[in-house]
Amino acid sequence: MTSASASKKSTKNQISPIITINKLNKWFGKFHVLKDIDLEVNKTEKIVICGPSGSGKSTLIRCINRLEVHQEGTIIVDGTELTDDVKQINEIRSDVGMVFQHFNLFPHLTVLENCTLAPIWVRKKSKLEADELAMELLTKVRIPDQAKKYPGQLSGGQQQRVAIARALCMQPRVMLFDEPTSALDPEMIKEVLETMIELAESGMTMIVVTHEMGFANKVADRVIFMDEGQIVEQNDPKNFFNNPKSDRTKLFLSQILNH
């Protein structure tokens, strides 16, 4: 794997880690969801996380922007450790984009307003600047003509692309995706995956929870398999799919691939 040699000093090195997770443990009440997670993510790296339902994938990536609070271990994002400091949390969140399974667009705002709200109020951009950037990114996800519509008037695939554009408008350094295509009809999955592939090609650092193995194969630098709150195995996609090292991984792969 790639980052073993990377030291804690983050120089302008290509392979310096942008996210460092050390001995992360999290409980929901008494329930131990995440166990001793160690993970380093380098700049421009694309990571796909898969695993059975309830294995803690969502919880793990939600810890990275502190939508969930962890109890043990450290998470360092772009040189800043996640603590209770609200100001720091908001700064990290504004640098970490997130795309949700159910889009979570703001239904009372137009597509354009969805994309400009945070740039204006968090990044302190002028409305003009924010509008320009939003239109540029909406064009990138190929829905500039929907800018004046409300989310409810769009198809699921279009909504998810707006959600991606909304996150990109903050010009984040990392993008987190939590099963971005699993709430979509089959014919719309493709358009969203294409958008994500283009984003990956542009050099964005991405952590993607997904069961789209075609996407993993094509884009991922590393595939991580989680079960029972642990990282069971991680490898480059070719080795991951062709010769899994753990029996648990093998079973999981046989289940999703034969499906």
Partner: peptide, 27 residues
């Protein structure tokens, strides 16, 4: 209001009052 609305606005870095005023209260 769906929990996802709060989470999405948190994920964008909006603080409590901003997400309350712009996202939660209008809805």
């Amino acid at each position: 209001i769906d929990k996802g609305q709060t989470e999405a606005s948190m994920a964008l870095g909006l603080g409590y009052w901003k997400r309350t005023i712009f996202i939660i209260l209008p809805q």
